[in-house]
């Protein structure tokens, strides 16, 4: 499974919705992800990909759509 697919799966688990067709939707604006879900996501990313993103490194505007998250993860793996 490639990174993109894995991130999409992770996000779908987290939000409980099918996002594969809406990869440019703003997850925070739509309320699909909140601070709590963000923390879960960071922990999952740590467990699955071994990437360490400290909370203070997390800038919402850089992580607010599935595509941006995929790009971020790909750059950090």
């Amino acid at each position: 499974m490639n990174t993109k697919q894995a991130v999409i799966e992770l996000l779908e688990d987290l939000t409980g919705t099918d996002i594969s067709n809406n990869l440019d939707d703003n997850l925070f604006a739509s309320g699909m992800i909140d601070s709590m879900a963000t923390v879960e996501m960071l922990l999952e990313l740590q467990a699955k990909f071994g990437i360490d993103v400290p909370v203070s490194e997390f800038d919402r505007s850089e992580w607010d759509t599935p595509n941006k998250i995929i790009a971020k993860v790909e750059s950090l793996v």
């Binding site: 601070s35 709590m36 923390v39 879960e40 960071l42 922990l43 909370v55 203070s56 997390f58």
Partner: peptide, 15 residues
């Protein structure tokens, strides 16, 4: 508060 208390605390609790 969100970034330095809420998120850090939830992170700590979950970890």
């Amino acid at each position: 508060f969100r970034d330095f208390i809420f998120m850090r605390l939830t992170f700590f609790i979950m970890k």
